[in-house]
Design a protein around this nucleic acid. Sequence first.
DNA 1: GTTAGCACTCGATGGATTAGAGTGCTAACA
DNA 2: TGTTAGCACTCTAATCCATCGAGTGCTAAC
Lengths: 346, 346
Amino acid sequence: MELDERKKLILGAIIESYIETAEPVGSRTIAKKHDLNVSPATIRNEMSDLEEMGLLEQPHTSAGRIPSHLGYRMYVDRLMKRYELTANEITRMCSLMELKIAELDTLIKEIANIYSRITNYTVIGTMPEVSKASIKHFQVMPIDDKTLMLIIVTNTNIVRDTKISIGRPIDLHTAARISSVLNERLSGLSCGDIDMEKITLLQAELTDNEDLIQPILHFIYECVEATENSEVFTGGISNLLSFPEYNNIQRAKELIGFLDDKSNLHRAMAVREHEHVRIVIGSENRAIELKDCSIVVSSYNIDGKVVGTIGLIGPTRMNYSKAVSNLEFLANQLNRLTSKPGNKQE
Amino acid sequence: MELDERKKLILGAIIESYIETAEPVGSRTIAKKHDLNVSPATIRNEMSDLEEMGLLEQPHTSAGRIPSHLGYRMYVDRLMKRYELTANEITRMCSLMELKIAELDTLIKEIANIYSRITNYTVIGTMPEVSKASIKHFQVMPIDDKTLMLIIVTNTNIVRDTKISIGRPIDLHTAARISSVLNERLSGLSCGDIDMEKITLLQAELTDNEDLIQPILHFIYECVEATENSEVFTGGISNLLSFPEYNNIQRAKELIGFLDDKSNLHRAMAVREHEHVRIVIGSENRAIELKDCSIVVSSYNIDGKVVGTIGLIGPTRMNYSKAVSNLEFLANQLNRLTSKPGNKQE
DNA sequence: GTTAGCACTCGATGGATTAGAGTGCTAACA
DNA sequence: TGTTAGCACTCTAATCCATCGAGTGCTAAC
């Protein structure tokens, strides 16, 4: 079945109404609120189609419709209009940034806290402690003429690998030599310990393979930051209890319990490299405990490098449009703020 | 009215029954469970007396009795028997300690988390970041012949004062000189910055008043640790939602919202100098949001010096006996553990 | 393709009744 | 004088039941 213009309009209207009221949406409501110039009966037919397409659901026969996770996905990907922050909101967000806190970690936590109060959602953030995590072991090996595999074991015993494209074949022997140089020079070090001196040393020892150094260093940073050493924090957990979705204590308890465990948060907050704002809806979450939640998360930079993430968590019935706008704005401001000199970066 | 032996027995029985079941306790229940060899009617008379004494309360006329805050206070102060940890519990607590974590702060947080799972209460802990807080300004002045007042302003603009007993009178002029020496040598420094060298310098400049240096340094430590720079953390907040007391979402939200704010936690967790285990019951809490909660909190040491606190929070109907035993054990173990060399202390 | 009309479904609401736990009081008892 | 049995009374929680109303799906007419 085709998703024509009118269906889109109706779907959008239903989702927005549901986001606002948390009540199943009936045909009459839509007919009245939006002047589509069609009768409730027509809308009922369309709604029936939308349900068949898996975009809507019916809690029980005589209730209205609510969006399915697929419906939300369609909405955020194709229907949602960008929410324009009001002048008032921009002012509030900006004043957030004027906290005069010297330490970056305190600053981010403080911002997260206040931000949760502004948005009335729960805020989750991660903050890598770059200086702590380190690499225990390196292993380099050739895969084919154009690809090299780099395996890294971190001090927390997490194993990660990546493929590096190379312009020329590298034989087993050379790969072994590179491995041993890396292990000798870099193992046990954290990102903070890798300075120009170390890099120059590497360059001297790997003169024939100097072009590999950049991608290797890049991957090291990536690994170390992805480990569980990075700190996670939350703010405004009690906001969750305002949503009628969590009037059921049992559900609330499960979710809050889940959020209590930092390693869970880490997994939930993963943002792919260079991804802008990521939206994970309901059952798209890997964790089953989050199957009725959505997460909107963005990364933020220090000196142009992604070092942490900050995001909102709420019921699937989340004001995505507003959440995305807010978060983009916040991340931008953070980027601007932290790229100034005088912060804690190594 | 006198609190005779039987009344004590009945009060204890009611409190322990209520702690277990969270249901108002009736006269029949007590008569049956404990063989006091008296009829329910007699117990009713006694309960009526206990209510008159303010130790019990009645939610409504035809319900049983529940302990009042005063009742709990009486219980923990005079009636409560020490809970003996079972071998199993001791094993679990000990294995908690075997986490091989180098950084003290991570260790404490991790222990707090697991501990909350063991006890099924919410754990709150504080951890001073001694290295961050500092003193902005000193002011010394004589009060009378035998007392000197020391006022300190921290970098967070908190003002605190103390009186120091001295064996001889000190005049205004001398006091001013001491003030200016302190400001010159110590202001802007944090505890971590005050080393032997600085102290020697002070001793040289205050030769006539060398005996003041120790108490002054002591108070500096006390102030800096009491400021909001010390870190607070919580674990197992979701445990609160298991208590029937928090079946009311509104109440749960208020409490969890309160716990979300770190500065609230600081105030709630204050332990007086050298106090062992402190129990704060219901309305004894200064914060109105905690009027239905109790807090059991203990301090812990590093190298014999109190540096942080760890405690449990739950409804006033808390198993005080067990909470105290658990906490004492934990604090003892922590003290033992951290007094070994090799931790992060400055 | 759209719409009006209508029967039907199903949860929510509110009132009435009932069951049960517990009290307080009185009078009898040791 | 303290203790106890008995009984009337109170209050909450649970249950039942009728009703309401929002909303659907289907049919037939436009």
